[in-house]
Design a protein around this nucleic acid. Structure first.
Lengths: 300, 300
DNA sequence: TAAGGTTACGGCGATCGTAACGATC
DNA sequence: GATCGTTACGATCGCCGTAACCTTA
């Protein structure tokens, strides 16, 4: 058994049990892959993959259990390299941030600018995706950390840090009838609503609040992205419900924002990363910057 | 990086940073070890070991962090082999049981006999040691499971299963003055006592009980081993305090046993093993046998 | 000076690549 | 018949062993 065989198992997994694709990924010829797999299975004394004829179609029960250990080894191996690289030069590296559009646009700019000042040698990749996919990206190790509001609590492989708490707000054009007067769920529900898609940016809190009150919103437009919502609010399509933190008093001065914290339970934005994954010192610093920015947000 | 380098790091660790000893353990010449270590450190770009001249004297800060990952990899690697061996033939293998004399003699015989009937191909090694050392043996992977009463709760790497609860008892020769009349701590404390050594078989419970009552026992003989205690009780040296489960009504019919459950808090015997360590199916079966035997003990 | 670690070099074996073959959709 | 996997064989590169050298208790 050796590390390239372990690596091979991972790559076969990631390429739908295709040895030829795996060989491409590993930059060696297919016959070499075939032989290494045979050697490995021979050493174990039992096949790892289910086969139909010669073709691999899945894992055997043995293979299933082994893949857990394989994942552990690969994780530890990359950790070793990451730890060493961090020691050699802690200002050099890559940071993959997975997040949603709203966070990327309204929360991250300040911490990212500050981070870049201290770590100019670190390349930053912003991966925008749905909350569901953010978690997948962590597991696939395409992202180092994820910043999001929904769907992170359940996963035992993830370390989750609370970042900040925020409330929803309505936005309407100036002079809109909803820009004045008492805000109740009943009144809100009487307007056509524009808000986030399911699974995005606290949409679940909105649903919960309405369900508890036995009501339903007339959501005529859902978007993953606050800017899209604002755009259609400006066009007079209806009332926008967005994250309060996504209202910019200067840019959005043509819109009236009204807080909904008394109607919709708060949402909590969190930072998540793989528990067993080593985070370079600059990544830990970036998390600190996020938490500082979060505190500042709370202070305002 | 490859697995033998990772293995090498582990072995260097286990041999006080001596490359020559490590080379013997790995059955290769010392120069090969030296070169592999150099290659590894070159790959990381930073030394793993602190050196005085040419001699290795310890880990660098980098090395310290890396050794955690190394341990993980080695564990996962042996797990893979163990899982495979279990699949190939789940009736063949080795079981290392670390325990104290008292458990080995008075609790384990029945479950071990039953276990052997079902798994005649499994070789059993009984490692007797002090509770302190039992845990060390688990960590050093010299033992697969440990059965003991003391010192297991603190360790987060260990999975601990409750096995059975028992009480201490006094044993005295027949016609001894303590064989009749009310049993109190005061009365007990007036006799010379023979019991377990510190750290063994619930000795801590005895200490706790006495301390709470503001008293002290006159322990004139401590032993790791119930049989030694009984022997000297028979010689009239004093009053024995032993585990109630270690009294055999037939063999020990010349001794009178009197329960102390109203005076000394109960002790709990547990089964412990490394969380991340794969246990072959026969080992899991053995644990089941232990639990069955424990229930039977409670039923009597 | 003995013991531990490094450097140099030759030989062997593991693993790769080419290529021909076999099987399956 | 095109794609995917296996088998055979020659070539290469990595790793070990021998041996001489360096360094420190």
């Amino acid at each position: 058994m050796n590390l390239s065989q372990i690596e091979l198992l991972r790559i076969i997994q990631e390429n739908d049990f295709s040895l030829s694709k795996a060989s491409e990924k590993m930059h060696i010829v297919q016959s070499a892959v075939s032989r290494q797999l045979q050697l490995f299975e021979a050493e174990l004394g039992s096949p790892v993959y289910e086969r139909q004829g010669k073709r691999l179609v899945g894992l055997t029960p043995l293979g299933l259990r082994i893949m857990e250990q394989v994942a552990t080894i690969n994780m530890a191996k990359t950790n070793i390299l990451a730890i060493a690289a961090d020691f050699v030069d802690s200002n050099q590296g890559v940071l993959h941030i997975a997040t949603t559009h709203t966070q990327a646009k309204y929360f991250l700019p300040k911490p990212i600018l500050r981070f870049r000042e201290k770590f100019p040698g670190v390349r930053i990749y912003m991966l925008e995706a749905s909350p569901e996919q953010l978690i997948n990206k962590l597991h696939a190790r395409e992202a180092d950390i994820a910043i999001c509001t929904e769907k992170v609590a359940e996963d035992s492989d993830l370390a989750v840090k609370f970042c900040y708490e925020w409330h929803h707000a309505v936005v309407v054009p100036q002079m809109h009838t909803l820009s004045e007067g008492e805000l109740t769920l009943e009144r809100l529900a009487s307007y056509p609503i524009l808000t986030y898609s399911f699974g995005f940016t606290g949409r679940s809190s909105i649903e919960t609040a309405l369900k508890d009150a036995g009501m339903e919103l007339d959501v005529i437009l859902s978007a993953a992205d606050t800017d899209v919502i604002k755009t259609y609010v400006r066009l007079g399509m209806g009332v926008g419900i967005i994250a309060g933190t996504a209202y910019d008093p200067i840019i959005d001065k043509d819109l009236v924002m009204r807080d909904l914290s008394h109607l919709i339970p708060s949402s909590k934005t969190k930072i998540a990363y793989l528990k067993n994954n080593y985070l370079p010192s600059y990544t830990q610093h970036f998390i600190d910057e996020l938490l500082i920015a979060a505190v500042e947000l709370g202070g305002n």
